[in-house]
Design a protein around this nucleic acid. Structure first.
Lengths: 234, 234
DNA sequence: AAGTGGTCTAGACCACTGA
DNA sequence: CAGTGGTCTAGACCACTTT
């Protein structure tokens, strides 16, 4: 019995509710008391109970529906999350020196798949950039990026040898939503060469696409050095 | 101008604040007005502004500190998140039939690396299980799992041919925290055979370790079929 | 139609932390 | 020490959904 006896912070209320679920007082699928009832039971305001329940629902432990009430999730869907920092910061956090090299810079009409993905109008040129990121002078990440210059015209004025597209975009272009896909792949010749590894080495690839309201911003494929681990918290 | 002119929901307030940041009215690193000032400016209660700012902070767009105030993040650290469902649910969500096959079940003293990872005492047997999960009768995921039977003794009574360890644990054992690591690897012979792919195929591997308070629960390595994508939202 | 969660408000006190 | 965010309260109204 380490929990404080009569604390009214929403976290304490949340702990008490979670305990009821973990100790199977309330079984999966079962309806739990309403907010007003819990507030009375815990001796706090309904607002506080609401906060506790709302955050529990966001972790997937409970399901809430108006009128239907709150139920212990039948299939607790766990949410994992991680922060995605700028690559430079990611390297420097390990006390290593960071550098990068721009190896391709083109303003071209993108191929059809990119056009479709970023919803770029026909015959509109976009910025295509390849960058290698180094950690302590060793290749670390290979970056293949398309930037929608209709949305982000300013980037054409930037010297991407001085600041990486990754960092410039993060600092100058907020986005409203995005998608992040992770998969395993074999290194293609060009990527393998840039990362100084054998062809057919298994690599972790992340593909991120971001949007500013209805307009696409950028699509970037990152190939990580073999053995790289992407870490999440549950 | 699609946003409603004078709505006082916290989301509307949040949109207005986000707009100020995205339109560079408030620059990165800059102090933004305090909650009371914003509440007055937007004509709403401070609580509402607080909610809006709190959720913005959780996405990494702003940094908040007591007394120091709220600043636009200099290096916006984006958080990605995804839900991790039970494998059966994951398959069935695609309208495919799910099945699994238990191919190894052993109660043994784990090797040192597992002992250390799960903090299992010397010479204590743990449960080691290998399972192949099928999507529409084709191998989908290869699962290699250790369960700490000191923490979860009940699982020894379960027939893991009837319900997968994955599903039983999710339904019966809540956990308090966990770690989730994703990496690329080459299929070893045993995994390749089970997934019916060539040796040296690049696979996505996720390793999850979960804890119930201070006690380890389970460590599970999942090898996904080649081409599998793990998707996150930003 | 009614019950439940979702949210807003106004006011208050607290906790942290920078000056 | 003083200012800022963090939270609690009590009451109210609203929105969604199931009955």
């Amino acid at each position: 019995m380490t929990t404080s006896q009569r604390a009214h912070t929403w976290q304490d209320i949340q702990d008490r509710i979670r305990a009821n679920i973990q100790q199977r007082v309330w079984l999966p699928g079962e309806l739990i008391p309403g907010e007003v009832a819990l507030a009375e039971q815990f001796g706090c305001a309904r607002t506080t109970v609401n906060r506790a329940l709302r955050e529990l629902a966001s972790t997937g432990i409970i399901d809430r529906k108006r009128k239907a009430g709150t139920r212990v999730a039948l299939q607790p869907i766990r949410r994992v999350s991680a922060s995605i920092p700028v690559i430079r910061t990611q390297v420097e956090a390990q006390q290593l020196s960071y550098s990068f090299k721009l190896i391709k810079y083109q303003l071209v009409v993108p191929p059809d798949n990119i056009k479709q993905l970023l919803q770029i109008k026909a015959n509109c040129k976009s910025l295509h950039v390849h960058t290698v990121h180094f950690s302590d002078n060793a290749p670390f990440i290979y970056e293949d990026r398309w930037v929608n210059t209709q949305t982000i015209g300013d980037i054409k004025k930037v010297d991407l040898n001085e600041i990486s597209a990754n960092e410039w975009l993060v600092q100058h272009v907020p986005f409203t939503k995005g998608e992040f896909v992770v998969e395993a792949c074999l290194a293609k010749a060009s990527v393998a060469k840039a990362l100084q590894v054998d062809v057919k080495t298994p690599l972790l690839r992340s593909t991120r696409t971001t949007w500013l309201e209805k307009e696409s911003v950028t699509m970037v494929k990152l190939h990580y050095l073999p053995g790289h681990q992407m870490r999440f918290e549950i």
